[in-house]
Amino acid sequence: MALSEFPRLGFDPFLELRRMQSEMNRLFSGYGFAAARDFPPINISLGENRVLVSAELPGVTSGEVTLNLQDDVMTLEGKREPKAQENANWQRRERAYGSFSRTVQLPFRVDAEKVQARFHNGILEVELERRESDRPKKIEIRAA
């Protein structure tokens, strides 16, 4: 849109609107899911008798997160503190700080002894295994 429909006015009243539109597009370009989302965002993947829960936790170390497991409910809790120096003059604050907690209901009961959790580049991955007693049993049918 290079040409304005208002050449006689000497200014384009829609220039500012278009600028705002592109600014809005930029602002929302990162949010493909929901505008206000829970922290941390969680992905859940299912495998055979296994479930993988991953959460985006940039800037959080393993000591700052606690994982609680009860039957098939997993709770992820922690706190993220700003690590800025004193006498800092803030230009921009977009990262969220404070306590967070997410509770996930897993599709089956898991074995608390066989949980593997690790951090990799700010993504927490928790791998949980289905309880032996909770697994589906295959029943052979004998021909009479």
Partner: peptide, 18 residues
């Protein structure tokens, strides 16, 4: 991103998980 300024530096913190 967080951006703050101290007397000597400008510090940028950008979240890029993964």
């Amino acid at each position: 991103s967080d951006i703050y300024e101290t007397r000597d530096n400008i510090v940028v913190l950008a979240e890029m998980p993964g």
